[in-house]
Nucleic acid binder design. Structure first.
Length: 166
DNA sequence: CTGGTGATGCAC
DNA sequence: TGCATCACCAGG
């Protein structure tokens, strides 16, 4: 089980190190192969693509809280997307889990794993929804721009396991 | 490639 | 009250 300290670091480090880890929900599991980091600041500029850039709202509240919890939001009124809260409490930062082995897309991922907004704020270090270390084989990390955003479009904050399905 | 879907939060 | 948004699918 990944401990709280794993998540209490900068979102880019957490994002990169989440690759190869295994997301568990009950008896369902999947190896994480694609993630995106959403930050407070990046190289002196505010990350306006992050939901937390709008400040604390009922939706974004958890992003500013204790690391290692789930931020689940509804995308375009249809798809639920799973994020992991990073950074020490009080600082915004999260990692969007975009793909598992064999499951491409954040909306399809939550559907396949049975994750919904009911899991908003859930502690990922205990309970039925967790992230654990798996059988990690060596892999290379590829960094690319994030998908589907209109601001900060060129920042290399999407990380994928090289060779995994796109 | 285009449009429909339809919750949420903020600008107006 | 309107509109842009960290997708996805169906249909042509």
């Amino acid at each position: 089980m990944l401990p709280r300290e794993f998540y209490a670091r900068d979102a880019v480090t957490v994002a990169r190190e989440l690759l190869g880890k295994v997301l568990w929900h009950g008896s369902r599991s999947g190896r994480i192969v694609e993630v995106e980091a959403y930050l407070d600041w990046y190289r002196g500029e505010r990350d306006l693509a992050a939901h937390s850039a709008a400040g604390v709202t009922p939706r974004t509240r958890v992003i500013f809280g204790e690391p290692g919890h789930a931020y689940v939001y509804l995308s375009y009124g249809i798809h639920e997307c799973l994020n992991v809260v990073a950074e020490p409490a009080g600082k915004a930062g999260c990692v969007l889990i975009r793909g598992l082995d064999g499951v491409c897309g954040p909306g399809r991922l939550t559907k396949a794993m049975g994750i919904t907004r009911e899991h908003y704020g859930r502690d990922l270090t205990a309970g039925e929804l967790t992230i654990r270390t798996g059988m990690e084989e060596p892999f290379e990390i590829e960094a690319t721009p994030r998908v589907g955003i209109t601001k900060c479009v060129d920042w290399p904050l999407r990380f994928v396991v090289r060779g995994s399905a796109k």
